[in-house]
Each structure stands twice: as C-alpha cells, then as structure tokens.
Design a protein around this nucleic acid. Sequence first.
DNA 1: ACAATATCCTGCGAGC
DNA 2: TGCTCGCAGGATATTG
Length: 276
Amino acid sequence: MPELPEVETVKRSLQKKIIGKKIIRVLINYGGNIRQPGMEMFRLSLVDKVFEDIDRRGKFLIFYLSEEMALVVHLRMTGQLVYTESELPLEKHTHLIFRLNDGMDLRYLDIRKFGTFDLLSREKLSNFKSLNQLGPEPLSEDFTVEKMRESISKSERVIKNLLMDQTFVAGIGNIYADEILFEVGLHPETNIQSLSEKDFYSLHEAIVAILNLGISHRGTTFRNYVDGDGRQGQFQELLKVYGRKGNLCSRCEAEIQKIKVGGRGTYYCPKCQPKA
DNA sequence: ACAATATCCTGCGAGC
DNA sequence: TGCTCGCAGGATATTG
C-alpha cells in the first residue's frame, strides 16, 4: 500500500530510467483505471509524448509530458509502475503498457484495480480537484507546527483519523500513521482537543522523522509494494507496531494490540501509548 | 459544515 | 482437501 515514502521511492527510481524517453505505443489490457480522457483518447494522446519530469504530491505521481501534458497517477493499494524489458512476458494483472523508444516498457500492474490515471493538460493541473484538496506536503517548509495546530484547532476527531486525512497533511496512510503515533506515544483514539502544546511539537517532529526514515529505507513492502525497478522496500523490518499484533513491544515488552479506528486496522502498544 | 460509513477489487488465511 | 467468509485499505460518493 504505497504511502508517501513508497511513492517517493517509485518517483526517484523512475526518474533515473524514463526521463527523456518517448512513448511509442500504448497497450491497454484493462482500461478501468483510466479516469480521463476516454480509453481511446488516452491511448492516442500518449503516443509520441516524451517524459520530461516526474513530481510527487502526497501519494500522487505527476508525469510531465511533452506538448504540455500531464499524467496524474495514484497507485492506491496494489498498483505498481515498473520499468521492464519489452521482451519479457506480461505478469498477471498487467493492465497498461507504455512502450518506450529504448526497448523497454513502463508497465502498470494492479491486483485490485483501484489505481487511477488522469491525463490532462498542464494548465488544468492547478484546478484538478484530487490534487487541489490536498493538505501541505509534510516534508516541505509549508508544513509547520503553527500551521498544523491552526488547521486542527477546532477538530473533534481522534488523532489517527486526522493523520490519515489527506486534507490535513498529504501522504500518510495506515502504516505510517500507526508508526508515527507509536513514536509520539499517543493512543490512536486520542482526541485532538486533549493534545498538549508539547504533543503538537512531538507529533510534527515524528511525522517528518518517520516519513524521512521510510524514504531512506526505500519504503515498506508489507504485501505487494515494489519500486520502479521492481525492488522491495526495507522499512518493514523497522516497523514497531504495524502488523505486529501479539508481538512484544520493542520498547517496553507489552503485547502489541490491534483495534479498529475509522474502520481501519490499527496497531499500538497499550503501555507506550496509553489511552488518555 | 462536518464526520462517519459504504464502495470499488483480488488474494489470502482461518475455520470447518 | 476444498469450500466459504472476512479482511486488507486508497480516495470518493453517499449518508448521517
């Protein structure tokens, strides 16, 4: 489940491979992931376009193409974008193939078909809703403690739901939310209004630190995630709570618990993250 | 206006 | 052994 560190890793791995490469053909095995334009227009519009740059906003990838086009991709749960030799046989769940002019493909695989592709002109990016409604980039200077505190000053929600809310801050998903809360020592159901000034600072610090740590380990491969080279991440080896129900906490040796928060499986240490 | 819930999808593991 | 069932969770539409 690609979150900010995984999407950033995909971006970096693909940047080294596809910048300057031209799409010579687009093959569509399954078009359900294409949101706009229509399938045929999508295919025709992409032929002969050159990848000029790749950007990331939250969990979205933005491919800047020649002729002022932009391709916005979200991998959702199980999406993969992999740079592969054109000769190699297609793996199961390969839905889209962007054949490049260097004998390679950029292939899109997605077991659960939740991923999305939006092809639009660059000028329309600024009022593209999916990107527009995103909160600040957590690793940019826009994301300050003061702004963070201001944006949630009136919130009645619990902290985990807020961390996962992309309009609060962009890029945190279920795995990193749990890891951030363990780092801060806050119970996932802590009410925002009960946070102290110190809590706000340590929360802000943990968001930045954990996401950076995830990137430096090239993301978390819990199930399906791989980067643009098909490589798995390493951060799963450093997970302190996520997916560790029944294991002993590395900090205090209490047993990691699993509950549901906002409909999502949520892991925490009852001793390090006591309920207020 | 805001917040919680249902929805899409396939693979996998638990339980019988 | 082979079946059913529940769960996994991104964003978004719908409901409360």
